[in-house]
Nucleic acid binder design. Structure first.
Length: 477
DNA sequence: ATGTAC
């Protein structure tokens, strides 16, 4: 793979062969050298061949190999002439992260950490195939799929302000449950309010360092404050939506009359029956994921109040923000000095809208959108802020986390015979988990250092560092 | 990510 440096944080894959635009990778020099033998750079070049792609196929410093599109990838397609690919969003539709602040300090929570972690682990079902206490008829499920977060709040799982501090207010309007397969609906009926497995987690953390005092104040973050972070998605329902539409598009792709560099890039015109059906189904899965995270936040609030014997006013577990990092969105961006309507595909990438954007809550509009960047279990997570540079360069996008360094298989091998739970306990981090191999697959050394990833997006100017959080207790699937 | 191959 031939790469040309653009500046200290950007590398270009020149437009060659079938590529319609160049590729641009955000990375340090050390990061790019580590990527040279990885197939993910070829995936960036492959995405650049797709019809209607605008400006460049992009990748963030947490890039790694994904299905068709790389994880850590960003691409925008013209709304009228572009394509949509289910692999561009990925299997976990609207996988995302939410962060809640509290009125509690580390000193107040530390003595109760073990029972708190145990009760959260009991209250939030986790693991592959886990089901929750919310059981839905297909009729109720269809309301979840069209209403998202508002459905959960209306049924007592949360407070009104949670909706305001969720990207898109926790609901995509294009959702149409009528396009979902019976199998997708069935898989969604009993999984609401469940964490899932793999990299999904619920984490009690503490604000360890503030980098931008003004923005931190606007976000309501202070040093020593306890936070709750949730990382989860659309569970089996989203998986089934992706699977169903990949199969349909593999059949219809011949209509496009082009040869794809990779069958995993199966796609359809946005303005086609197949394309619109996918976007309607994807919106259902996105709304399901928001309702899912909303219910788990409510469960976390209840569990904190019961375990610590405190009132809502003493807890004040308020949602700072909820971001998606696997999604396609219709957005308007400036391209060559003109407004253009595009479908922005972020796969393992986070929206990072800058100051003044109408789609971010009033409270944050002067500083920019909060961005939540989880790291691995043992190191740190960051809160960042969106910037004008992100609007100019990346369709208002940035990284989504640390990014994998080792494949799951390689991590499992490297961690064989070790107790990652005990290793983390020595660092004062309590971990509760379900899956037999989850801890080794997810151990800290399986991930890049999130601080280095964040250093790149901060250095490149597509996000600004606001605060770093340190993990205290983690619930894993 | 995923009833980790219906």
């Amino acid at each position: 793979m031939h790469l040309e440096p653009l500046d200290p944080y950007r590398w270009q894959i020149p437009k060659t062969g079938q590529m319609r635009v160049p590729g641009i990778i955000y990375s340090s020099e050390a990061g790019i050298n580590a990527l040279l033998r990885d197939g993910s750079l070829q995936q960036v070049a492959n995405v650049a061949t797709l019809p209607g792609i605008v400006t460049a196929a992009m990748a963030m410093p947490d890039i790694h190999l994904g299905y068709g599109f790389p994880i850590g990838g960003v691409a925008a397609f013209d709304w009228d002439t572009g394509v949509i690919s289910p692999g561009g969003v990925g299997y976990d539709i609207n996988c995302g992260v939410r962060l809640a602040t509290t009125a509690l300090t580390e000193d107040e929570v530390r003595p109760h950490l073990e029972p708190l972690a145990n009760r959260l682990f009991q209250a939030v079902p986790s693991g592959v195939g886990s089901t929750g206490s919310v059981r839905l008829s297909v009729r109720d499920l269809k309301q979840v799929l069209t209403q998202g977060s508002a459905w959960a709040v209306a049924r007592g799982f949360g407070q009104d302000s949670d909706i305001e501090y969720t990207e898109e207010n926790g609901c995509l309007a294009q959702a149409d449950p009528g396009v979902l397969s019976d199998r997708a609906l069935e898989r969604g009926r009993n999984q609401l309010g469940t964490l899932g497995s793999g990299n999904h987690f619920l984490e009690i953390g503490v604000v360890e360092e503030i980098f931008d005092a003004h923005t931190a104040r606007v976000f309501g973050l202070v040093p020593g404050q306890v936070t709750v972070m949730l990382h989860s998605g659309s569970r089996g329902l989203g998986y089934q939506v992706c699977d169903d539409h990949l199969a349909a598009m593999k059949k219809s792709v011949a209509k496009l009359g082009l040869t794809l560099p990779d069958r995993q890039l199966a796609c359809a015109m946005i303005q086609s029956e197949e394309g619109q059906a996918y976007l309607s189904a994807m919106a259902c899965a996105a709304n399901y994921a928001w309702a899912n995270r909303q219910i788990m936040l409510h469960t976390a609030r209840q569990t904190f109040m019961e375990t610590l014997s405190i009132s809502p006013n003493s807890l004040r577990m308020n949602l700072l923000y909820d971001v998606c990092h696997n999604i396609a969105k219709k957005e308007t961006h400036q391209v060559d000095g003109k407004n253009q309507t595009v479908c922005v595909v972020r796969k393992g990438a986070t929206r990072a809208f800058g100051p003044g954007h109408p789609d971010i809550p009033d409270r944050f509009r002067a500083v920019g959108q909060p961005i939540l960047t989880p790291g691995d279990m043992g190191r740190a997570s960051y809160v960042l802020c969106g910037t004008d540079t992100a609007m100019d360069q990346t369709f208002g996008s940035t990284c989504h986390g640390a990014g994998r360094l080792l494949s799951r298989k390689a991590a499992k091998k490297a961690g064989k015979g070790r107790s990652i739970q005990q290793e983390l306990a020595k660092k004062g981090i309590v971990v509760k988990y379900t899956g037999r191999f989850t801890m080794t697959e997810e151990m800290p050394e399986a991930y890049k250092d999130v601080s280095e990833v964040v250093g790149v997006v901060h250095g490149a100017g597509i996000s600004r560092m606001v605060a770093r959080l340190r993990p205290m207790a983690v619930v894993k699937g």
